Every structure is written in C-alpha cells, then in structure tokens.
Simulated scan of single mutants.
Amino acid sequence: MPFITPDNGSLTVFNLFDTATREGQKTLLDTMQKIIEGANYPGWRSSTLHGGLDQPCAANYIQWRSVDDLQERYEGESFKHNTVPHFTDLTTSVHLLKTEVVATHLHPALEHIEISPDRDDFTVIVIMGVEPAHQARLVELFAEPDAWMQGVPGYRSHSILRGIDGDFVVNYAQWDSRETYEAFHTLPEEQRPAHTRSMRAEAGQLLTSRSSNTYEVVYARSAVDTPAGDR
C-alpha cells in the first residue's frame, strides 16, 4: 500500500473531482477504481482513491516518478480524447494539483504514514492558497514539529505538501474519527498552546484562500515493481 514520506523523490498529484450527488460520486469512484486497477503507465507509482464525506466528491492521491512521466500520461491521445471528456460528463469541476511532500508529522505510536482502505482513518485534505512570495514561509510554519499535537486525542498524522506551481500548500491529515477531529478543529484558540496560537495567527494572515473536505480511503494500488520504501 502507498506511504507518505518526504524522502522518496515522488511527485504527488491530487486529482480532485466534485460531483452534484451521492449517486454521481459512486459512479465517479467506480470509474476511477477501474482505471487504477489497470494502471501501468511509465513512472506511475501509486494511486489512493478517496470518497468525500462532507460533500459528494472524490480525491485521487497519486505518486509519480517525475513531472515528465505525468505529462506523458496526460498528453496521450487516449487520455485527451477519451478520459477527459468522460470525466467532464461525470463531474462538476476537476482540479489537478502537482505537489511534493516537504514534511510529515505522526503520532509516536505510528512508524510510518500509510494511506490504505484497510485502515479506518478519518482523512482531511486542506488546500491553502498563498501568494508565491509567501509560500516558503507558509510551508515553514506548518512543517515545524509541534509536540503538542502528539497528545491531541485522536490525532494520527499530518503531511505538508508544497504546490509545485507556487501558490498553494496542502495539509493531508489523518484522525481516528470525525468526533476527535471536530473537537480539535473547534477548540477555542485560548485553549491551544501559545506557540500554536502564534503559528496559526501568522499562517492565517498569509492565506489567500482555504478549502477543505473530509474523506475515507476506498481503494489503493501501487506499482508491483516499486520498492516498498518508494511508495
């Protein structure tokens, strides 16, 4: 199964799809799973399919060897003339975000960050818009280790990914349940440590936009010839 690590050299792509209904989401997920089951593209390392919980949508967390491999896939005739029109019919919007993992944080009980349907993670994906001139600082703020998080009930991990285009940062987080995540998310600022409040305040001033959704992992597959440490 895929793992999140900043030292494997992968290009990480988030394919985000919005749909109007839960029925549309199911059709979308079924279609995407069939594509992943047959994936054998040069440079493709893994795909992890997520179904939206709060809103009907899907997210595909894809690991590629390089940007060139991704471009080769997306410039193929079958992709342009068959895949793209099909997904245009299935979705209300599509976003492709090219990123690289810059930092991972996890509970001491975990040895690594695995993304798998065999786990019961409550997953949150947050997309934070930022001016290119401030992206490095935003990454720095979120990449800094925070020992307090390790003691927050229900916390499992979060990974910070830098947008290759320079104008966004992604926070991919795992929790043990919706309840524990909501308790953390709605915790009054005065109940958070001073260093955490300071970080959140500075980060908030840098954001140009923020969007999030919650997910469950429904399917994952890795390339059979990819070493475990590179997934």
Rank of each mutant, 00 (worst) to 15 (best):
residue 229 G to I: 10
residue 26 K to T: 10
residue 58 A to H: 06
residue 62 I to P: 01
residue 129 G to W: 03
residue 216 E to D: 14
residue 23 E to Y: 03
residue 96 L to T: 15
residue 58 A to N: 05
residue 189 E to C: 13
residue 61 Y to W: 02
residue 141 L to W: 03
residue 106 L to A: 12
residue 96 L to C: 10
residue 2 P to Q: 10
residue 11 L to F: 05
residue 27 T to D: 14
residue 148 W to V: 02
residue 63 Q to D: 14
residue 2 P to A: 02
residue 58 A to F: 03
residue 178 R to T: 00
residue 112 H to Q: 15
residue 87 F to I: 05
residue 123 T to D: 08
residue 79 F to R: 14
residue 114 E to L: 05
residue 65 R to P: 00
residue 49 L to V: 03
residue 66 S to E: 03
residue 107 H to T: 05
residue 123 T to A: 09
residue 12 T to V: 14
residue 221 R to H: 02
residue 115 I to A: 08
residue 137 R to K: 09
residue 198 S to K: 06
residue 64 W to A: 07
residue 92 T to H: 06
residue 205 Q to T: 14
residue 22 R to Q: 15
residue 209 S to A: 13
residue 74 Y to P: 06
residue 10 S to P: 14
residue 74 Y to N: 12
residue 149 M to W: 08
residue 167 D to I: 02
residue 80 K to I: 11
residue 10 S to A: 15
residue 208 T to N: 06
residue 85 P to H: 04
residue 193 P to H: 06
residue 79 F to D: 11
residue 118 D to V: 11
residue 31 T to Q: 01
residue 206 L to Q: 00
residue 144 E to S: 08
residue 21 T to F: 15
residue 34 K to D: 04
residue 217 V to N: 12
residue 31 T to F: 06
residue 24 G to L: 08
residue 75 E to N: 15
residue 3 F to H: 08
residue 189 E to Y: 13
residue 11 L to I: 02
residue 179 E to C: 07
residue 34 K to S: 14
residue 76 G to E: 04
residue 223 A to F: 07
residue 105 H to A: 01
residue 163 G to K: 04
residue 109 A to M: 13
residue 155 Y to R: 00
residue 150 Q to C: 07
residue 102 V to K: 12
residue 167 D to Y: 05
residue 19 T to A: 04
residue 49 L to T: 01
residue 27 T to V: 12
residue 63 Q to F: 08
residue 132 P to H: 06
residue 50 H to Q: 10
residue 195 H to Q: 09
residue 187 L to A: 11
residue 41 Y to H: 05
residue 231 R to V: 10
residue 49 L to P: 03
residue 161 L to P: 02
residue 76 G to H: 07
residue 158 H to V: 00
residue 160 I to K: 05
residue 90 L to A: 05
residue 95 H to Y: 14
residue 213 N to T: 01
residue 54 D to C: 09
residue 26 K to Y: 07
residue 57 C to S: 12
residue 120 D to L: 10
residue 190 E to V: 15
residue 201 A to V: 12
residue 137 R to T: 08
residue 229 G to H: 11
residue 78 S to D: 15
residue 135 Q to D: 02
residue 25 Q to F: 12
residue 68 D to T: 07
residue 4 I to P: 03
residue 208 T to H: 01
residue 113 I to N: 05
residue 40 N to S: 15
residue 33 Q to I: 06
residue 62 I to A: 10
residue 11 L to A: 00
residue 4 I to T: 07
residue 114 E to M: 01
residue 94 V to T: 09
residue 195 H to W: 00
residue 185 H to I: 11
residue 113 I to Q: 03
residue 229 G to Y: 06
residue 204 G to N: 15
residue 198 S to C: 00
residue 224 V to M: 10
residue 17 F to P: 09
residue 32 M to E: 10
residue 178 R to D: 13
residue 196 T to R: 00
residue 214 T to P: 07
residue 178 R to C: 06
residue 128 M to I: 05
residue 201 A to Y: 10
residue 91 T to G: 10
residue 226 T to P: 06
residue 57 C to R: 08
residue 17 F to V: 08
residue 109 A to S: 15
residue 21 T to C: 15
residue 52 G to N: 01
residue 60 N to Y: 04
residue 116 S to W: 03
residue 8 N to P: 11
residue 227 P to E: 09
